[in-house]
Design a protein around this nucleic acid. Structure first.
Lengths: 247, 247
DNA sequence: GTAGTTGATGTGGTTGGACCACATGCCCTA
DNA sequence: TAGGGCATGTGGTCCAACCACATCAACTAC
């Protein structure tokens, strides 16, 4: 007696109605992370809508990183509630970068802002620093492929961001990273002397971690900013000044 | 000759294939903001997939703020490419707040971080300051409803964020605002003396704008941080203190 | 001749039904 | 008892039809 009235009076599209129902279940705590949505056919019958509309709503939630859909039977099957804000923000940013309405330079600038804040905020005893330290050791290996080094580098910086203890900043950092991942990889391939660059990056990483451990947040922030900006400058972020004008 | 092979070998879901195609068109510049996607039936035939899958892809893009779908004929009809990153980030954040995996305190903290950075970065001649100034005048009206005041307040703060000239920061600020809009409204209704609060907010707004106009970014950042945190503290949210971003 | 009406056309929105691939688990057989 | 095979239930995909809507052109009435 609920759905059809709203649909009629508010001209709400059907899948949005399903979306509202699910969001309401989430807000009310009747659906929590790890829980499962009713089966698509069941939900369609409950809400008096077609399975198609239910599926459209679930697609959106999946793109938002709120649910994961799995076929078959068992614990991996069905539509279960997860929480992956990074996925949502990341693909959204990536798409808008594709439309060329989000300049890459702005993304880099935002990353510098967030990450320098994070290392300034992180306390010297943050548990995430252990992981960061372990990652640095792994990056010191001699016979490391470039792609592996970069993968570890990503995880190192994300660990630093996590150390600030702010879930929103962590998610945004991850999404910024993801949205320009292809761009960064392309830049790296154009470096003149990768070994020299890698060596410098390792040293800078150590300095950053040391500053945090020394409880010198201001210094850590400065080092991080110089680290990131220096990399993009060396790799030839020529677009810094030539990006199309903002609308 | 393309779609079915990828679908077979990569086990890619059909709507993701459509998504890839569209994203590719965007990256290649063959689809730009203001342009129109082929009609759903046409696109389905072109990509050799069902209209259902095309629609699921379009739903995702719509939720991401990349397209807008309109029925009928004429300029408002069809699926046209837009660019509204704020919508995507906003609903994503709101949904994850609903799952209670993104603490409101973290959102407020992030907002303080971004906005204090923005006012520090904004130059005294940024054109957005004119709009901010006009908004302040409107907020000085005597017989202003609380909801109208709050709406103007939102626009004032967004104008400040825009003044920094970073599209990513602007989008994130807008989405943060949207994700906790209901929460903030609830807090406001519990204030003991609204008139006194509004009066204080007006004065603080003037001080912030004056600091930016005076090219004193550091002072503006401090004022903004105190302004936001003071409001949430008065309204009863116990949030951790946050230092303004470095200049 | 002009003004209003009416139908054709093309768009997204929605529905029901059908079939597929897959993963589990029960049940029956050897 | 150990093994294979079918029943069940899940999401994934496709199809064919219909609706509501907005525009535009042709037609009709004056």
């Amino acid at each position: 007696m609920w759905s059809n009235h709203i649909n009629y009076y508010l001209r709400m599209r059907t899948h949005q109605l399903v979306l509202s129902w699910i969001e309401n279940e989430l807000s009310g705590g009747r659906l929590t992370v790890g829980g499962r949505l009713p089966a698509e056919r069941t939900l369609a019958e409950q809400l008096k809508v077609s399975r198609t509309s239910v599926r459209e709503a679930i697609r959106i939630l999946e793109a938002m990183g709120v649910v994961r859909a799995g076929v078959g039977s068992g614990p991996e099957a069905g539509t279960v509630v997860i929480s992956d804000p990074t996925a949502a923000l990341g693909s959204a940013l990536r798409l808008h970068v594709a439309t060329q309405h989000l300049p890459v330079a702005d993304i880099v600038e935002t990353r510098v802002l967030l990450e320098s804040w994070a290392v300034a905020k992180a306390g010297p005893d943050a548990p995430e620093l252990e992981e960061a330290s372990a990652l640095l050791e792994a990056m010191a290996a001699e016979d490391l492929a470039v792609s592996d080094f970069l993968a570890l580098d990503v995880r190192f910086h994300l660990a630093l961001a996590d150390a600030a203890g702010n879930a929103v900043v962590s998610a945004m950092m991850g999404s910024l990273r993801e949205s320009i991942q292809g761009y960064a990889a392309e830049l790296t391939s154009g470096l003149p002397d990768w070994e020299a660059t890698a060596s410098r990056l390792r040293a800078e990483h150590q300095d950053i971690l040391a500053a945090i451990r020394n409880d010198d947040g201001g210094q850590a922030a400065r080092l991080v900013a110089a680290h990131i900006e220096g990399y993009y400058k060396e790799a030839g972020l020529a677009s810094a000044g030539t990006e199309p004008a903002r609308p």
